[in-house]
């Protein structure tokens, strides 16, 4: 289990990284935390001829507030997210979710950029980014552009990234104070991808749901935004009948694959359960 040979590049700036990626073409891959890519290389399921290591690019690090948004550098690790007070105060759901990703060692190295950019439907951050209305800054040879998370995912491992483009940062609008949130993830064990998971961010007014967004992880080829399910709970107090209705609306858009985590009917069923549980828990913590 040894990776195939490759050339190693370690640029110091985003411009150099982008230049390398676009000039080396499809045989080059950016290397962030490496915890998805390196195992694939060891299995020789990925055999890039060039690796562009982003650890030398200082501009890709950091977590900062910019107006009403939190801007997270693509190379911020899950561990750094967990250590950030800014995240803890403004985006507490990110702490909850980061702790459910892989294991402690992986979280020291695994980056948020890698998690959202590689298009693995099993990754947890993409559905959350869609739920939070985040956008991604993509930089390429022809300049920078921002793409909404909801527009980014096209299929398993297929994203809006053009060849030579690099995801450099994520901008997350800060949800209103007092918002409720929850990420319910069913997995077989620590380190596993979700059998099914649901992210909920909502606000309550007078005991009723005022706004709500629901994201789903690993229940389709791409992360999903369950808009009908979210609509179904607006204006309700999340009574059992409403929860059931929301779950049914969410299940209707799920199309998971059968795998060792269970058959399709199971993964859809627990997908609905995760939606109900996340809604209830989010409402309970809303102020």
């Amino acid at each position: 289990m040894i990776p195939g040979p490759f050339s190693y590049h370690r640029p110091a700036t985003v411009a150099d990284a982008v230049k390398l990626l676009s000039s080396l073409g499809e045989e080059a891959r950016p290397l962030a935390g490496g915890h998805s890519l390196v195992p694939m290389m060891k299995l020789r399921l990925a055999t890039p001829e060039h690796l562009v290591d982003l650890h030398g690019v200082a501009a890709l690090k950091g977590i900062s507030r910019s107006g009403n948004a939190i801007v997270i550098g693509a190379m911020a690790t899950q561990h750094e997210l967990l250590a950030s007070d800014e995240i803890g105060q403004s985006l507490p759901i990110l702490h909850e979710i980061a702790l459910l990703i892989a294991d402690p060692q992986v979280r020291y190295r695994g980056t948020i950029g890698g998690n959202v950019a590689n298009g693995d439907p099993g990754n947890d951050m993409p559905a959350l980014m869609m739920t939070l209305g985040a956008s991604y800054r993509l930089e390429g040879a022809s300049g920078a552009r921002d793409v909404a998370a909801t527009e980014f995912y096209q299929g398993a491992y297929f994203t809006a990234l053009e060849p030579g483009e690099l995801l450099t940062s994520i901008s997350v609008p800060v949800p209103p104070a007092g918002h409720g949130y929850a990420y319910e993830k069913l997995k077989r064990k620590v380190g596993d991808y979700a059998t099914a998971a649901a992210a909920v961010v909502l606000t309550m007014a007078d005991g009723k749901v005022a706004t709500c967004a629901i994201g789903l992880t690993n229940l389709s080829e791409t992360p999903l935004l369950a808009t009908d399910a979210a609509k179904a709970v607006i204006g309700t107090s999340l009574d059992p009948a409403t929860l059931k209705k929301a779950a049914e609306a969410a299940v209707a858009i799920m199309s998971p694959a059968a795998d060792a985590r269970g058959p399709v009917e199971y993964r859809k069923h627990v997908g609905g359960i995760m939606v109900m549980r996340a809604l209830s828990r989010a409402a309970a913590c809303a102020k």
Binding site: Y8, G34, H35, V38, P39, Q105, Y108, R109
Partner: peptide
């Protein structure tokens, strides 16, 4: 803490 099998 790093898994040294997943780093070059």
């Amino acid at each position: 803490s790093v898994k040294s099998c997943t780093m070059f």
